[in-house]
């Protein structure tokens, strides 16, 4: 099991390898398409992440001291971004998720690249994930 840090590095390397932003977006979109999604029943109103322009549902479950995230989104780029976060955070110790340093988003250039409203959406997703982790880490 790779650590949060190692997982972040894989994403940074994958992103670095792609020079054009259109290719980076293709990569995000593919991650979105291949992510396990929520069933219609699971998409409850209170799972919606506030502050996203498109609809993003985020669900967290406790598995021992680990936290498992599942998500879905109605727009595919948002889905790809949440898929990246899940890749990094899901099935990791809740305590580590709550304390994780998220420099990978800066290193990927993603935060700078997104418009302020979309960057806010991204931050909302991260805040929500960390919040769940914090609760589970108790």
């Amino acid at each position: 099991m790779s650590s949060i840090q190692e997982k972040q590095q894989v994403l940074i390397d994958d992103f670095d390898f792609l020079e054009e932003w259109m290719d980076k977006y293709s990569h995000i979109i593919e991650m979105g398409k291949s992510m396990a999604t929520l069933s219609e029943d699971e998409k409850e109103e209170d799972l919606l992440v506030k502050g996203c322009q498109s609809k993003v549902w985020l669900k967290a479950e406790k598995n021992g001291d680990h936290v498992i995230f599942k998500a879905d989104a109605d727009a595919i780029i948002a889905k790809g971004i949440v898929a990246m976060l899940i890749d990094v955070f899901s099935d990791q110790p809740a305590k580590e998720v709550a304390q994780a340093d998220l420099d990978f988003l800066d290193k990927m250039g993603l935060k700078d690249h997104l418009s302020p409203t979309r960057a806010n959406g991204l931050m909302s997703m991260i805040t929500q994930m960390k919040y769940y982790a914090l609760v589970f880490a108790g």
Binding site: Y25, A75, I76, A78
Partner: peptide, 13 residues
């Protein structure tokens, strides 16, 4: 497709 996704990818172009 979702309109937001179209908007982002058009902006890239």
């Amino acid at each position: 497709t979702h309109s937001y996704d179209l908007g982002v990818l058009l902006d890239q172009q």
